[in-house]
Simulated assay, not measured.
Amino acid sequence: MLYLLFLLAHLFAALIFIGTVFFEVLILAHLHRHLPARVMVQVEQGVGQRARALMPWVLLVLFGAGIGMVWLRYRPILAAPLASAFGALLSLKLILAASVLLHFVLTMLRMRRGRVSARYLRFIHLSLFAHMVAIVLLAKSMFYLSW
């Protein structure tokens, strides 16, 4: 039962995080063509403020539940990750997840120091987008691929 709670918390947090990244990359970034610059600045500031307030909590749930899932069910598999396709794919997924967390922490630190440009944010969003696509593909593939 505890594993199910971790799984559901992890899935809902992933939906929020991935949905936010997808929204910023696929929708928000393309509004520049349709909205005046001053409106776009206000929209980006509003979205950014909300994301900065919400995402630390979302990531806490996402990673906390993920760690709980690994602890309860996948520790033996990760003891020898290359012994199975599932272990190898899970290990790769965890490496990508750690990279996502590192992206987030470094960006938050840069924001506190006032060293975040629009170009940097664009790069981070695209990188997170690529990470998210890979993580979702790995999360599903783990249960269907074998070698």
Results as ranks from 00 to 15, higher is better:
Val116Ile: 13
Val100Asp: 08
Leu35Trp: 10
Tyr144Gly: 05
Met69Thr: 02
Tyr74Gln: 11
His32Pro: 00
Phe17Asn: 10
Met40Gly: 02
Leu59Asn: 13
Gly64Thr: 03
Leu78Trp: 09
Phe6Asp: 01
Leu106Phe: 15
Val61Pro: 03
Phe23Lys: 08
Leu59Phe: 14
Tyr144Gln: 02
Ala130Asp: 02
Val47Met: 08
Arg122Leu: 13
Gly87Pro: 01
Phe17Arg: 01
Phe143Ala: 13
Lys93Asp: 07
Phe23Glu: 04
Trp71Asn: 06
Met108Trp: 14
Val61His: 08
Leu128Asp: 12
Ile77His: 00
Gly114Ala: 09
Ile18Leu: 10
Phe63Met: 10
Met108Gln: 14
Ser146His: 11
Leu54Asp: 01
Leu60Asp: 01
His125Asp: 07
Gly114Tyr: 13
Ala83Ser: 14
Leu96Arg: 05
Gly68Lys: 10
Phe104Glu: 11
Ser127Trp: 13
Ile67Gln: 08
Ile77Ser: 00
Ser146Tyr: 08
Gln42Val: 03
Phe63Asp: 02
Leu82Cys: 00
Met40Tyr: 11
Gln49Tyr: 03
Leu31Asn: 01
Ala51Asn: 10
Ala97Met: 10
Ala83Phe: 01
Gly46Arg: 05
Arg50Tyr: 09
Arg122Val: 03
Leu4Ala: 12
Met69Gln: 11
Arg33Met: 04
Arg38Tyr: 13
Pro81His: 06
Ala130Cys: 09
Val47Cys: 08
Leu7Gln: 15
Leu138Tyr: 03
Val105Arg: 08
Arg112Lys: 15
Pro56Glu: 02
Val70Tyr: 05
Ala139Cys: 05
Arg75His: 00
Ser91Pro: 01
Leu145Phe: 15
Met111Arg: 13
Leu26Thr: 11
Ser141Tyr: 08
Phe17Met: 12
Leu109Val: 05
Leu78Pro: 06
Met40Val: 01
Leu138Thr: 05
Arg75Phe: 11
Ile95Glu: 01
Leu2Ile: 15
Ala83His: 03
Ala85Ser: 15
Met1Arg: 11
Ala37Ile: 06
Ser91Ile: 00
Gly19Phe: 14
Leu54Met: 04
Leu15Tyr: 09
Leu11Asp: 02
Leu137Glu: 00
His103Glu: 13
Ile124Met: 12
Leu35Arg: 15
